[in-house]
């Protein structure tokens, strides 16, 4: 509990970065990884969509844990954003629109 209990402004900022990366960030990564796999893989539509969903299901918990395992909260947030933008770019390239 040493991490949450003491809430100096710096640590609180660090924690906010991690939570943003873990919860909405992790979910968005899963969603866009699923979209990219569904759009880019060859094969039947249902197969591509299914592979995307199952891999997405693995990505969220892994991102979630990594968000709290990596030593610097800002790196976590930055890394998640870069990965997310890359995936969004890949999806848009293949014709995905919000």
């Amino acid at each position: 509990m040493a991490i949450a209990g003491k809430s100096s402004p710096l640590k609180r900022w660090d924690l906010t970065c991690r939570i943003l990366a873990a919860v909405p960030g992790g979910y968005a990564l899963s969603a866009f990884a699923g979209i990219c796999i569904a759009l880019w893989l060859p094969g039947l539509r249902v197969e591509r969509a299914m592979i995307g969903m199952l891999i997405g299901l693995l990505i969220w918990p892994v991102t979630f844990m990594m968000s709290f395992a990596i030593s610097d909260g800002r790196k976590v947030f930055g890394g998640t954003m870069v990965a997310l933008l890359a995936l969004i770019g890949l999806a848009v390239l293949k014709g995905w629109r919000p």
Binding site: S30, G34, L39, R48, A49, G52, M53, L57, A91, W96
Partner: peptide
């Protein structure tokens, strides 16, 4: 358990192709 609900939790891939 999460797999049984995956089509509700992550419907974005299917929506992109269908």
């Amino acid at each position: 358990g999460a797999v049984t609900l995956v089509t509700m939790l992550l419907p974005w891939g299917p929506q992109a192709v269908y």
